[in-house]
Nucleic acid binder design. Structure first.
Lengths: 148, 148
DNA sequence: TAATATATTTGTATTTTGCAAGTACTTGTT
DNA sequence: AACAAGTACTTGCAAAATACAAATATATTA
C-alpha cells in the first residue's frame, strides 16, 4: 500500500506552489491569501466577511484586516446589509473582477501545461479522481474544517 | 470540459486545511511551515539549508530563521559540513523525529478517514491519479517551482 | 427593557516575511 | 600565492500577517 501522507504531502505542496507563483503578482501587489479571497468572493453571492473567513479556514480578526486592505486597493466592495446592519456584504469591484479573471486565466494556463504531460485518458482519470476526492473531503467531518 | 482551476482551487485549499489543522499542534508550538520543514529534513539525507528551502519554494532568509527556531526548540540539528564549511547539514533530533512521526501518523489517520468515504475502486483511482499528477507536475518546467 | 447573542473592528504584541547588506568560506585566475 | 568572484548562510530592518482579548454596533430573546 502507498504511503498516503507522502503522496499527498508532495501533491499539496506542488499545488500550493503553483498557486503561489501564479497569483503572487508583484505588479498588482496581491498576496496568495488575497487571491484566495478574491476567488471566493467571486464564487459566492455577496458573502459576509464571516462566511468567507470560514470557507477559507481563517481567523476572523486577521480576515477583517485583509478585507480592509482589499477595499483600500479598490478590489473589493463592502456594503452594510440592509436587513441586518451587523453584517457586511462583500463583492468584487470591476477592478477586482479583472484581477481575479487574470489570475484565473493564468492558473488555467499553468494547469493546461501540466495536463499536457498526460495522455487524454490520464487527464480524464485525474479530473475524475480530483472530483472524487473533493467529494470525499466534503463528506468527511473530521477533516478540512477550520481549526478547533 | 471541467473548469480545472475551480476543481484544483478547492482541492488545494482543502488539502491545505488538512495539513494546517493536523500539524498546527498548539501544544508543540509547531507551525504549518515548520511541519513541512521537519517532513522534508526527514525525507532528505542531511540536506543543506538551501536544499530544503528550494524544495519548499521558500525565501532563504526566512528559511534560515525558521531553522534557527527549530534548532532552538531542539527539533533540528545543524552541523557544519566538514568538506565545505559554508554549508550546514540538517537532520532531525530524536525529539524532532518523534514530533514528525506524530504528525505523520495524524495526517495518515485523517487521510484514511477521507478515503473511507470512497469505495475500494475509487480509492485506487484517487491514488493512481495523484501519482499521475505528481509525475506531470514534476515533468512540467513552468509550474511548481520557486518564484522567479 | 435588560440580558444575551452575533458580526465586525480595534488594541496590542508576536511572528513571519523578504530585501539589502553583511560574514564566512571556496574556487578560479593570473 | 594572492586576489577577484562566487556560494552558503546570517543579520538589520521595516513591512505585513497573525491571533488573542476587548470593544463596538446591531439583533434577538426573555
Amino acid at each position: 500500500m502507498v504511503n498516503k501522507r507522502e503522496l499527498f504531502q508532495i501533491l499539496t505542496r506542488r499545488l500550493g506552489l503553483l498557486n503561489k507563483n501564479c497569483c503572487d503578482y508583484k505588479s498588482l501587489d496581491i498576496s496568495l491569501v488575497q487571491s484566495h479571497i478574491l476567488y471566493e468572493i467571486r464564487r459566492q453571492d455577496y458573502p459576509s466577511i464571516q462566511q468567507v473567513a470560514e470557507t477559507l479556514g481563517f481567523d476572523i480578526t486577521t480576515f477583517s484586516r485583509q478585507i480592509q486592505t482589499l477595499v483600500r486597493k479598490r478590489l473589493v466592495s463592502k456594503v452594510q446589509a440592509p436587513e441586518d446592519k451587523r453584517v457586511y456584504l462583500l463583492s468584487l469591484t470591476d477592478k477586482g473582477f479583472l484581477v481575479e479573471e487574470q489570475i484565473d486565466k493564468k492558473l488555467n494556463t499553468y494547469l493546461d501545461e501540466i495536463f499536457s504531460h498526460l495522455s487524454p485518458e490520464e487527464q480524464k482519470k485525474v479530473i475524475d479522481a480530483a472530483t472524487l476526492l473533493n467529494r470525499a473531503m466534503l463528506e468527511s467531518d473530521t477533516c478540512c474544517l477550520p481549526p478547533l
